[in-house]
């Protein structure tokens, strides 16, 4: 079973974060939520592994404030 890799994997984490933030900058709350939904589905499909996806879903749920 593959594991969700939660180590830091980008050479430049600031740039990766900024790339996503920039995509949201001009969007209102609804458009931003819609954008995220599309992004999540694209990335989930790229991962293509139910075990990893399941761990990511759990990790995201666990870290809610």
């Amino acid at each position: 079973m593959a594991d969700l890799d939660t180590s830091s994997r980008f050479d430049n984490p600031d740039a990766a974060f900024q790339l996503v933030v920039d995509a949201h900058r001009a969007l209102d709350a609804e458009a931003s939520a819609e954008f995220n939904a599309r992004l999540v589905l694209l990335l989930a499909n790229h991962i293509g592994d139910m075990d990893v996806l399941k761990q990511a879903v759990e990790a995201a749920a666990k870290t809610a404030r």
């Binding site: 939520a33 819609e34 939904a37 599309r38 999540v40 589905l41 694209l42 499909n45």
Partner: peptide
Amino acid sequence: GDKRLRDAVLDLAVEFPFARRM
């Protein structure tokens, strides 16, 4: 949130075969 994901699948489906299967 459920509806947003559903709509995202439909929007992506125009372009991407993986989403058509969803």
